[in-house]
């Protein structure tokens, strides 16, 4: 295992810092959906750092958190017992709408995405959502999604507990404030100009864009030790790619 910081490690740490943001509502119970190894790594990391958080990881092979089937995730969220969830999208737009349906005529006659999973429910029921998508291109980050699986913002009168806290990509971190994205930091090798070049939606940016902080030595040691050990059974392909066995 080399000492160089893997992009996945950097993203996991960026997500962990958002989860621990002291200005956001507390995240006592976090759920992570299927096929989300980097969010899962972020959650294991904050647990290893010593924060008392309950993690419900779908599809964990041993230690399935539910006794009522996967349905229990939605019942927990419906009651308000899940504080934070992660969602992605084949397309994400500047209003934090996500599209997991597809492009072109309904239901995705252009490019079909996998489908909306639980997003149309979870995004409205959970107080905090972190949007996460590694690919940061104008293909993904669009001015307006072709179809809305789940809306970023709802009108007054629609029951909703929260919305996106942030969007994390392979190039940058955006905060979602008052219905609009604001560039918070860009990862090493990126700049305000490169983010603008690859982002299809309009967003706010500070005069000087800080670099996404690198993982500390402690965070890296935890990721490569106990977090890796927790993840290798559920995410073997991911662990082999990032940590080499």
């Amino acid at each position: 295992m080399s000492g160089a910081i893997a992009p996945e490690e950097r993203l996991a740490v960026a997500l962990a810092r958002l989860i621990l943001d002291p200005e956001a509502p507390p995240a006592r119970h976090i759920a992570v959906g299927a096929a989300s190894p980097i969010p899962a790594a972020a959650c294991w990391l904050i647990k290893q750092i010593g924060h008392p958080v309950r993690l419900s990881l779908l599809h964990k092979i041993k230690g399935n958190p539910f006794s009522e089937g996967t349905r229990e995730l939605f019942d927990l969220a419906g009651q308000g017992r899940i504080d934070l969830f992660f969602l992605g999208g084949g397309q994400i737009d500047g209003a934090a709408n996500i599209n997991l349906i597809g492009t072109g005529a309904w239901p995705g006659q252009g490019v079909r995405f996998p489908g909306s999973f639980g997003s149309a429910f979870m995004y409205l029921m959970v107080p905090r959502t972190i949007l996460f998508r590694e690919e940061h291109t104008r293909r993904v980050l669009v001015p307006r999604v072709d179809w809305i699986s789940a809306p970023g913002v709802s009108p007054p009168g629609h029951f909703r507990r929260g919305t996106a806290q942030a969007l994390v990509t392979g190039r940058a971190v955006f905060r979602f404030v008052n219905g609009r994205f604001r560039l918070a930091s860009c990862h090493p090798g990126e700049s305000a100009a490169s983010i603008a070049e690859h982002t299809g939606f309009a967003y706010d940016a500070p005069a000087t864009v800080p670099e996404t902080p690198a993982p500390s030595a402690t965070e890296l040691a935890l990721l490569r030790g106990p977090v890796y050990a927790e993840m290798r059974e559920t995410y073997p392909a991911f662990c082999a790619r990032v940590w080499g066995n």
């Binding site: 939605f74 349906i101 909306s116 149309a120 429910f121 029921m125 709802s154 009108p155």
Partner: peptide
């Protein structure tokens, strides 16, 4: 969306014609 399918089956399980579900508003 996942909880809608669970809800539809729970309604059938109870023998009632429908059940309500939160969320979904604003989704295509």
């Amino acid at each position: 969306t996942c909880p809608a399918i669970h809800t539809a089956l729970q309604a059938a399980e109870k023998g009632v014609p429908f059940l309500p579900l939160r969320g979904l508003l604003g989704s295509d």
